[in-house]
Design a binder for these strands. Sequence first.
DNA 1: TTTT
DNA 2: TTTT
Lengths: 149, 149, 149, 149
Amino acid sequence: MSGINKVILVGHLGKDPEIRHLEGNVTVASFPLATSEMYNKDGRRVEQTEWHNIVMWRGLAEVAAKYLFKGKLVYVEGKLRTRTYEDKGGVRRYTTEVVADNFTLLGRKSDFENPVNATDDPAAKKVDDANSEPEVDFKENDGEEDSLF
Amino acid sequence: MSGINKVILVGHLGKDPEIRHLEGNVTVASFPLATSEMYNKDGRRVEQTEWHNIVMWRGLAEVAAKYLFKGKLVYVEGKLRTRTYEDKGGVRRYTTEVVADNFTLLGRKSDFENPVNATDDPAAKKVDDANSEPEVDFKENDGEEDSLF
Amino acid sequence: MSGINKVILVGHLGKDPEIRHLEGNVTVASFPLATSEMYNKDGRRVEQTEWHNIVMWRGLAEVAAKYLFKGKLVYVEGKLRTRTYEDKGGVRRYTTEVVADNFTLLGRKSDFENPVNATDDPAAKKVDDANSEPEVDFKENDGEEDSLF
Amino acid sequence: MSGINKVILVGHLGKDPEIRHLEGNVTVASFPLATSEMYNKDGRRVEQTEWHNIVMWRGLAEVAAKYLFKGKLVYVEGKLRTRTYEDKGGVRRYTTEVVADNFTLLGRKSDFENPVNATDDPAAKKVDDANSEPEVDFKENDGEEDSLF
DNA sequence: TTTT
DNA sequence: TTTT
């Protein structure tokens, strides 16, 4: 029945987020995130980098567009989702993405001139722009559009 | 600076949740949760149980009141919060609690007659009772009342 | 730079683990794991299931072979790894797996006749069979063979 | 039966670790870690800081002694443990700590001149100093001494 | 005070 | 392909 599907990453953006606007005023941001691990192989220090496809929806995507850039160190929390698509040759292929629920900027002091702690909220119907600081405790609608991508 | 404060527990409730109603129609649920670990000590199998004080606020507390009972196996996600209080002798004491963000019932088949996957949502202003299944994807206001407790 | 790459899943095995024995006495176990989520769509209750490819190495694979079976509810902790391979047509393809670090059996009472809390340990050179209960606090070598698969 | 007790923190050390050497050549490191959260209260930006007592054992403590200092940004993974003690007045008191399993230094570029990704390993009997880089993939014995503290 |  |  109900299960848990949670991903926690800390890594650097490989590129600026790519922003797309879908019908119904839905924003989607996507970018590659690198998580590197150092380990010893035969006595030498080796770095292994894993690349993750991060996807952010709606309000979270809009915050991402403002604050996330190539090279930034970021904490990302989300869930795994494998989707299927057909390549140009009509072959069914799979790709696994991390659909983010929230993120937090970490890292260099300069990053913190605009600290961000954003959340993709599946419940709220509308962002409350009223009380300033839209980048903090940001919430936004989620839902069936998840499968539009 | 922004940081991360996350707790993930899977364990059994030691008691039924204790429900309190604060001013402003704010509901608080609290209960002890046991997480047990088996390990080998001198070749013998030993069980070590850790007890956690779980606190749930508002809508999440109301869902807890309906679905969480002594003995249930539950996944709880939340954050650590240490608060200070004065004991009867006027001595300052500290207690550390896990303030839950969401929970998911796991476990026995009988538990799944009422499956629950609930979330405490700091953004939504009102629970949407309209479209049934209030226990699923439940959302509720959060905020400064966190410190009322 | 060092990063974090962590996956936490609670779900049911879709099949018994498939066990392979590689050169050098290395065991690999792999199986699909389903994590289901209930949500409301247009007022109706909908279940969405995500399938994850779980991979376990060495000693952890051996524990998996003994205790994990189709239908079991299990907590799995691990890391994401996307690897590349060529399909029969010589086309480069990608697949994303969760390489498990440890797992814990959850769930039905009958599951607990053989409770398991296993760990894939990148440090230990050999499993300590001496002091009984090999299924608990199980540790095993890890390392470069990770890329043999 | 078996449960999950996991804490994930990203924050800054409030002090240099305090290092203690117990009987049996057991090292213990402890330090306060701050995780801050920004949120909006009445339209103003407010920062709330939570302090955590982090404890590291054996080899992990030794790595901590070398690489962790006041102000450093660090990812810490561990488990909650509440222990009881008697204060000077003979009153039973409780304190909750995060017993770390591993940590990773994050943050400023200068931090990465000595990147660290350390693990407290409950299985390995001895650290392998042979192949250099003792700070990476560090492993060490764990066990019953956990309760010596 | 849970669970096995 | 799981589970409820």
